[in-house]
Each structure stands twice: as structure tokens, then as C-alpha cells.
């Protein structure tokens, strides 16, 4: 019995790292551009369909498809920010929100029209392989997905920490006016940020495709999941997002074993409510 829980928890933690990567994208966009990307899950669903198309057309493994999908999502994100979102940066919060809701509705239903309502997935030939460590049996795909998620997250951390562009973006986030005063091209940097967030999302989508099916109407629930992970982890904290993604993954998996898989989101919401009550700044966030 305890083996069952252990296996579920480890599997959940590995899935959670991919959730964390997805939430990182949201955290980056909100932390810098200060626009809530309410189309987050819908954009990721789009990336997942992109990966499916690549798998069908070129037999590309989703792990390989990560690169072209991330680049494509980067370009789309950059375009979306420059073309549409940027004029909303200084507008009231609810207007930005409605804008992204509109984008989300259009994306979800375009996907429904294009791909039909049925669930789709990609079969890789190592889908059923697993590693065994004593009582612990871990799916190969989960390990691969988790390692890839960590690698992409690591690259993101390094980008923000060590590159000049990364520092410039952080400067915009810290002080919008100051960044303009010292001559940073804020519009371009915002576009880059949105693009980077979307690229994370594209990578996360490809990795999730190894683990789960994709349906066109799943977008809103992933948007919500990403938000919950970011709030639980602490707004603006990248490590927080990763950690809380892990936590949500574990709680989902344990809830699935202990109760009913369809009730797993209740535990995630309960986690959110608890965090909002007792630690509103999030696990690793700083008090505003």
C-alpha cells in the first residue's frame, strides 16, 4: 500500500516539474509585463497540437519537437505582445483580462474547429518502458520529461541571471520608468519577455504530450492550474513556481490514488485557498 503512494508521489513530482515549467512562463510574463496571460493554457494547447502535427508529418519525437515548437511559440508570443497586448499595458487590469479572455476563447474554439473534440496523443516507442529502483517503478517518459523541464528551467534562470538582455528585462520589471530613462527599448524587451514565456509554454506543452492526451477544451483548466501554481509558489519567484508545480503534481497524484482521479483538482484548489489564507505572498514570495 505504501508502495502505491510512494510511486504515485514520485510520478506526480516528475509531472509536477513540467507543470512548474508551464507556470514559469506565466510568472515571467506577469512579473515583467504585468499583464495576466489568461490565454496561457490555451496557448499551450496550441503548442501541443503543433507537436502532434510535427509527429504525424515528420515522425518527430515530442522531445525533439520541443525546439521548433519553442521557437514558433517565441515568435507568436513576441508578435502577440507587440501587435495586441502592448497597447493594453497601461490600461486597467480588468480590460487586459478581458482582452486575454477574448484571445483564449478564440484559440480554444479554433482548436475545436480544427482538430475536433476528441482526445489525441503521440505514441513514442518507449512509452511503456520504465526503470525500477527497489519498490519504485518510474515511467521512462516521466523521467525524460522531468529532466527536460529542469534543463529548460535552468537555461531560463541562467538567461535572466547572466545575459545582458536578461538583466535588461529584469530592470524593466523592477522599474519601468527607470528602464526607459536609461534608454532601454522597453517595447522590444516586453515582446522578448512574452516570447520567452510562450517558448517555455511550448516546451512544457511538448513534454506534457509525452504524459497526457490533448483535447481542445482543456485550455481553461491549464490556465487555472498555471495561475494556482504561480500564486502558491509566490508571484515573481521562479524557483517558487517550480517548487509549487512539484507540490501540485504530488497532491494531484496522491488525491488520485486516495480518492478519485476526477476529484484531484479539488485538492489543488484547496491548496490554493490554504496558501491564500496563511501565506498570501506564496511559498517563496516576498511580502509586497
Amino acid at each position: 500500500m505504501s508502495d502505491l503512494y510512494l510511486n504515485a508521489a514520485v510520478g506526480g513530482a516528475l509531472t509536477g516539474l513540467v507543470y512548474g515549467l508551464m507556470a514559469l512562463g506565466l510568472s515571467v510574463i506577469f512579473g515583467v509585463v504585468r499583464v495576466v496571460n489568461f490565454a496561457h493554457g490555451e496557448m499551450m494547447t496550441g503548442a501541443m497540437y503543433g507537436a502532434i502535427l510535427l509527429a504525424q508529418a515528420f515522425k518527430l519525437d515530442p522531445l525533439v519537437a520541443m525546439a521548433p515548437i519553442a521557437i514558433g511559440m517565441f515568435l507568436l508570443g513576441y508578435g502577440l505582445q507587440r501587435g495586441l497586448v502592448n497597447s493594453f499595458v497601461q490600461r486597467p487590469e480588468h480590460t487586459q483580462f478581458m482582452l486575454m479572455v477574448a484571445v483564449a476563447i478564440i484559440l480554444t474554439n479554433s482548436q475545436l474547429i480544427a482538430f475536433g473534440p476528441n482526445a489525441r496523443n503521440v505514441q513514442v516507442d518507449y512509452a511503456l518502458d520504465s526503470y525500477q529502483f527497489g519498490a519504485l517503478i518510474i515511467d521512462k517518459v516521466r523521467i525524460f520529461a522531468a529532466i527536460a523541464a529542469l534543463a529548460v528551467s535552468g537555461a531560463l534562470f541562467a538567461f535572466f541571471r547572466f545575459t545582458l538582455t536578461g538583466r535588461a528585462i529584469r530592470a524593466c520589471a523592477d522599474n519601468y520608468l527607470g528602464a526607459q530613462v536609461v534608454g532601454l527599448n522597453v517595447k522590444h524587451l516586453y515582446g522578448l519577455t512574452f516570447g520567452i514565456g510562450a517558448a517555455c509554454l511550448g516546451a512544457a506543452g511538448c513534454l506534457l504530450l509525452l504524459l497526457l492526451d490533448v483535447t481542445p477544451l482543456q485550455g481553461p483548466s491549464y490556465t487555472l492550474l498555471a495561475f494556482i501554481i504561480v500564486i502558491v509558489g509566490g508571484m515573481g519567484s521562479l524557483t517558487g513556481a517550480l517548487l509549487s508545480g512539484l507540490l501540485v503534481g504530488v497532491s494531484e497524484a496522491l488525491a488520485g490514488v486516495a480518492f478519485d482521479p476526477s476529484a484531484k483538482s479539488m485538492f489543488t484548489f484547496a491548496l490554493l485557498i490554504l496558501v491564500l489564507l496563511f501565506r498570501p505572498q506564496g511559498l517563496l514570495g516576498r511580502r509586497p
Binding site: V36, E93, F97, L224, F227, I228, I231, D260, S262, A263, S265, M266, F269, A270, L272, I273, L276, L277, P280
Partner: peptide, 30 residues
């Protein structure tokens, strides 16, 4: 009470309202 007592406003409040709605939906489902 939960939101305003702890200074949750704007976007966070909106997310909280969705979360409650989903929470109750799953509850009624079961």
C-alpha cells in the same frame, strides 16, 4: 471575507472566484 481580509484584490481575486467555482463544481460532481 477570505479575499478582502487578506488584501487579495484585482487579478488574484478573480482567480480566487474561479477557483471556488471550480471547487464547488467538482464537489457537486461527486
Amino acid at each position: 471575507f477570505l479575499a478582502f481580509r487578506f488584501g487579495i484584490g484585482g487579478v488574484y481575486f478573480a482567480i480566487l472566484t474561479i477557483a471556488f467555482s471550480e471547487f464547488v463544481r467538482v464537489g457537486f460532481d461527486h
